[in-house]
């Protein structure tokens, strides 16, 4: 069962990768990055149970936090064109 789950996650990862490679707009690529990070988290969680180490679940949670922060930065960049400059961002 876990094998099927990991195969499915791998297929989803490759689809997200295809979208990141082709994706004509910026939002395709952002979505692809977000999807890929979510799938990495899922893959680590499933692989943890597959190899008998469910502690990897904690690791997967930490990965989610990291990818959330970087997603915020990416979205801020794509909206304002820069990261921290409030004066320029207001314009």
């Amino acid at each position: 069962m876990l094998e099927f789950a990991s195969i499915g996650i791998l297929v989803t990862m490759s689809l997200a990768l295809v979208r990141a490679l082709l994706g004509p707009t910026v939002y395709d690529r952002i979505l692809a990055l977000n999807l890929f990070s979510t799938k990495t988290v899922l893959l680590i969680a499933v692989a943890g149970f597959l190899t008998g180490r469910p502690e990897w679940l904690d690791l997967a949670l930490l990965y989610t936090l990291i990818s959330f922060i970087s997603l915020l930065a990416v979205l801020r960049f794509s909206k304002y064109g820069n990261l921290g400059d409030d004066e320029r961002a207001k314009r």
């Binding site: 990141a20 990055l33 990070s37 990495t40 680590i44 930490l62 990291i66």
Partner: peptide, 30 residues
């Protein structure tokens, strides 16, 4: 696109490091 792809590259290699049992390296990579 290159920036997004480099993020994806890091995530994939972090997953690979985790599978190879180098959990601390994987976490640093992520």
């Amino acid at each position: 696109a290159a920036a997004m792809l480099s993020g994806i590259f890091s995530l994939a290699s972090a997953g690979l490091f985790t599978l190879l049992d180098a959990v601390d390296v994987a976490f640093t990579e992520a």
